[in-house]
Nucleic acid binder design. Structure first.
Length: 254
DNA sequence: AACGTGAACAACCGCCTGTAC
DNA sequence: TGTACAGGCGGTTGTTCACGT
């Protein structure tokens, strides 16, 4: 137990790394591989503590790091994973190849956190207005929606689309999302008099968390998780595999 | 041009965990 | 079993840069 003493040593450089320091660190790791961070200052002459070397390598110098803008897909995935895992940045980063926990954390703090917070406050206002509102199949809103018979894929869709009708067979709730065309046919079917009788006594009183979770169940991401887990596939080296396994454990816990 | 402000990102700090002894 | 250490992680701070006034 206890903290590493290396970072409290005097005479160590702090602040931004120089090109020379980067080069020394990179050369050392290319030769000796990752790990044994404590040896790096001794063997390379770098005036940096081992932890600092590790951080610099993992967050900046690693060759497989993907730099540049975070794509819309990545952003969406980050939001969903954060919803599921909270501030477990390393776990989230484990599902975003080439992205580091630090990068994701920074991106969240400077962009997504505010964004999501804004959506939530907007959401809470709408929620108050719509609380316990009951809809029937005769509702114009319901008929005009293209999401009938599908699962909501985003929080916003959940808010504007009618929720899943009361499910007698839970398995139907896990059916994959249908295309727009299929939606139309579903709409036609569901608006038939036969179905009207019982399928759309809908209560908009549901949990957005569940909507996200069920969304993840349906996602390619989750299917890939299941596939990898069931087949014991571990990506890349041992550490990455171990990280992924932790991730599955976290999901199961949640 | 000078200054203020906020966003983005790099790096540090301190706690926790795993492991060797 | 207890201790010391290294590594890992999340939170926070510091620095740089772009932009508006």
């Amino acid at each position: 137990m206890g903290r590493s003493p290396c970072c409290t040593r005097e005479g160590l450089n702090k602040g931004t790394w120089t090109a020379l320091e980067d080069q020394l660190l990179t050369d050392y790791i290319k030769t000796h591989g990752e790990g044994k961070w404590g040896n790096i200052p001794k063997e390379t002459g770098l005036k940096r503590c081992g932890k600092s070397c590790r951080l610099r390598w993992l967050n900046y110098l690693r060759p497989d790091i993907k730099r540049g803008n975070i794509s819309v897909d990545e952003e969406d995935l980050i939001i969903r994973l954060h919803k599921l895992l909270g501030n477990r940045w390393s776990l989230i980063a484990g599902r975003l190849p080439g992205r580091t926990d630090n990068e994701i954390k920074n991106y969240w703090n400077s962009n997504l956190g505010k964004k999501v917070k804004g959506e939530q406050s907007k959401h809470s206002i709408e929620e108050k207005q719509k609380t316990k509102t009951k809809l029937t199949n005769k509702s114009p809103t319901l008929k005009s929606s293209s999401a009938i018979g599908t699962k909501a894929s985003t929080c916003r869709e959940v808010l504007v689309a009618p929720p899943t009708p009361k499910v007698e067979n839970p398995e139907t709730d896990l059916a994959p999302a249908t295309s727009v065309d299929e939606d139309s046919s579903n709409l036609a079917a569901n608006t038939s008099e036969e179905n009207n009788a019982h399928n759309f006594d809908i209560e908009i009183d549901f949990n957005v968390e569940k909507a996200f979770l069920s969304d993840i169940w349906d996602s390619d991401f989750w299917k890939q998780c299941q596939f990898e887990f069931e087949n014991g596939i571990m990506e890349g080296g041992g550490s990455v595999g171990a990280k992924n396994f932790s991730f599955y454990e976290e999901i199961l816990k949640d």
